[in-house]
Design a protein around this nucleic acid. Structure first.
Lengths: 202, 202, 202, 202
DNA sequence: TATGAATGAGGGTTCATTCAT
DNA sequence: GATGAATGAACCCTCATTCAT
């Protein structure tokens, strides 16, 4: 009796739209990408697109949510070794990070977050989870004497995220620098930042 | 006879427009701010505005140039003391940096730089000058033994700029954190990053 | 074998749709109410709705027909007493008339009738029946000497309908006036209008 | 220094737009007439139209205001003779009233007033002025014994306006009836309504 | 210099309607 | 009978830009 609504198909279409939107946002920016562009990219009419999303803002928000959660999920995986190594290996294992283009959208979101409360909340929510995990790891490191005990774990975790998110700036600002260079520098920086001072080690 | 072109007056008007544009871009984003908004903000008709700038892009580009050069000029002033202190005091003396809103435009520019070659060049050019100055300072610090000799001055300088530019992310991502906190953390981080390792000091 | 078409069920569905449409037209106007609104109100998919009506216009037309016939049917019931009393009691017994909102749709239809020939015909057809009944009553009243013999029954009947249909205007135009007030005034007006002049009565 | 803003020219353009809008609203209804239609009718681009009016609603509202004030202004002119004659001569002197098409828009406005508060206020405001004048005339008539003293002047005035505004219904509902017929009927009706009862005349 | 009139393409969104299932 | 996917034209409105004065 009638065509049955297939939730997976519905979600599939939503995903297609989000992917198309992501590509367009990447090329033209959040405001520069138009609905009709996204429709063309997704091979879909505007009326149909609005069957799946109520507004462009809704698309941006969900895209932001998924993008950030994917981006930051890498932090969560537990590995062994000294704390700094664990942290950094996790950080650099973010697959999309080796593609300058793919992470460029972060700046769009940061810019948007300055104006759009919903996007700011999404950013904050997504960061919060990662921050907790990082803070835990840092506390464990402090217990083992691998991380300076003078650092506030919560704030330090926030700082680390900001630093990592700042990484894609370098290739933009300095044409000559590559990803490996900036990664090595970042690694060194974080390692030195975390390690206990000589005085404490005794 | 006839009206003489007064270059200073001309430049004055351009400055007014750029200021108005800056305020609008801040509130609505580079793409969200319209020419008519800027006209209203500058108390000027569109026809008149186009007498001073050939296009909106030209306004954005010049605004970016002035904004970035102002932002980074603070690096250039020479002071005394150990290198880290000098660097950091310069960094934090950036007046606009204590206002979250004022530096939000940086993200707009970074986002734009990912798409717009002209803006990327402007970003690169502006950063280049500062990088050279910072690298000089770093080299001097290495000579005096205040800065780790294992660090490449050029790359480290780039890193420092990225780090500082990343600062405004924190309040966006972590609602609780203030400017003072993030500044203290950044300061500690940079100081530890730069200082020579215990082994080297001997 | 196979499903048998059940005409009553079919008509039931049509009625549901018309009722839902009526509610929507009331709230948003004939043009302001959309098919998707009506579908939601009727708890029905668009495809299904189009199984019962070929177009939105068809819905409007049938709704108009039913609405007007319901509205004017009240005129038809015969009662006893002097003609004016009969007429007026019938007029005011129109149940939906005591709700400003419910009769608002009449204006929509009158406006539409000015443009849409089909709707105009529906309006004319529905009025015609009532007019005949009223004219009969008026003629009977004239025979009994209760109604002025100088009045043309046909035209007077039309006039009366217009007057009654104009009633809902008052609350719209004069915020302070209520339904009871306007009803009393109308009653007095019609009574005076119909009654024979003193000279004639002798 | 620069093209001077000529207020008359500006107002002239506004008037042109309102006239074009009026014609379109007449043909297609308030909601059925689109901005692009109005633009075409006014020989103007949409961008330019929005230079003169901030929204379609603003156009509707001003059109309503001007239309109603023109329509009702005829009531205000003082003439001599018995009150009923004065009133009716004023009423029927409404020039646009002899053109069925021209007054059809009233129904659009009444329908709109049921949903749109702004339009309702405009309707109420415009009616209020006329009501006061009519009430005055009625009171004068009562003093001279030409109008029944039992009638409340305020409410009766409202009633009269409603009746007159209802006039254009007749040709819509009864195809055979012309303007002269309906006018004669209305005149007779109002005259009988107002005149003192025989008992009072003594 | 300086103004505001003027353009028309394109913005996001909704529409009545059709179709495959 | 009944669903929801799918369309594309049209909706109101804003845009960067040009032009006559």
């Amino acid at each position: 009796m009638g065509r049955v609504r297939v939730p997976e198909q519905h979600e599939g279409k939503r995903k297609e739209i989000l992917d198309a939107a992501h590509r367009c946002f990447l090329r033209y920016g959040l405001q520069g990408a138009s609905i009709s562009m996204i429709c063309k990219e997704a091979g879909m009419s505007p009326g149909h697109l609005y069957h799946y999303f109520p507004s462009k803002d809704a698309i941006i928000e969900q895209m932001a949510d998924e993008y950030l959660s994917t981006l930051h999920t890498y932090f969560g995986r537990q590995e062994t070794g000294d704390v700094a190594t664990v942290l950094l290996s996790e950080i650099w294992s973010m697959s999309s990070w080796d593609d300058t283009a793919h992470c460029r959208i972060l700046f769009e979101l940061l810019a948007e977050a300055g104006r759009n409360d919903r996007v700011r909340d999404i950013l904050a929510d997504n960061t919060a989870g990662v921050r907790k995990l990082l803070a835990q790891t840092l506390r464990a490191g402090q217990a083992k004497g691998e991380v300076d005990r003078g650092l506030d774990p919560e704030h330090t975790a926030a700082m680390l995220i900001a630093i990592v998110d700042a990484a894609p700036m370098l290739p933009l600002m300095v044409p000559g620098i590559g990803f490996d260079e900036s990664r090595k520098l970042m690694t060194a920086m974080v390692r030195r930042f975390l390690e206990p001072k000589a005085a404490e080690q005794s």
